[in-house]
């Protein structure tokens, strides 16, 4: 059953999943709904080029289609999709035996700095390079929660479902990540003086 484009936007993710299971063509609507968000997520957590990120995303969507019957309604589809994409990205880097980098656009860095503290702490426009340095120095697990919380704008429950970690642990990680961010920032500033 193919549905008209107008009515698609009114469909929930769960309805689109059910429709995709009936007809594979409908899976395209889910792809269209999430491709941009997931593509930028892949780039943020891996630092790959746009074309490479597209390849990872394609594999991730094919994997999603294959596992579509395992999707549980107790979960948000977006959380499940982020989880599959994250796993696909990690396994891609394992295959290549290289360490993932991260890539943040200027806008991302400003948003991150905004989330970390008050305006007194950061002159965001000037300190973009410094923010990149800070993120470089942070553990992957902290960077990952910062990206999901402040750039992907996911709540704790969603992050918990994406990373498959308890909500409490996610909260702890976010708080620690913010603290580490500020500590490294202070260090960089002191070393300048």
């Amino acid at each position: 059953m193919i549905v008209s484009d107008e009515s698609i936007s009114e469909k929930t993710d769960n309805e689109l999943v059910a429709m995709s299971l009936e007809n594979q063509e409908n899976f395209l609507y889910l792809v269209q709904r999430y491709e941009k968000k997931l593509l930028s997520y892949i780039i943020r957590i891996s630092g790959v080029k746009y074309e490479d990120a597209e390849d990872v995303l394609q594999d991730a969507f094919v994997s999603m289609f294959l596992k579509l019957n395992s999707f549980d309604n107790g979960l948000k589809f977006s959380s499940w999709a982020y989880r599959v994409v994250r796993n696909q990205t990690i396994s891609e880097f394992r295959k290549r035996k290289v360490r993932p980098l991260q890539y943040f656009e200027e806008n991302d860095l400003v948003r991150l700095a905004d989330s970390m503290g008050s305006d007194d702490h950061f002159d965001k426009k000037v300190l973009q390079d410094e923010i990149r340095t800070i993120l470089d120095q942070m553990d992957k697990k902290y960077r990952e929660v910062l990206v999901l919380k402040f750039l992907e704008e996911k709540d704790y429950n969603e992050i918990s479902d994406i990373l498959k970690k308890p909500v409490g642990t996610v909260g702890t990680l976010v708080n620690r990540a913010k603290k580490k961010f500020l500590v490294i920032y202070e260090k960089i500033n002191k070393s300048k003086i």
Binding site: L28, V31, Q32, E54, F61, V62
Partner: peptide, 8 residues
Amino acid sequence: TDIGNKIL
């Protein structure tokens, strides 16, 4: 979309 086409 292009990517959607490829996936399908």
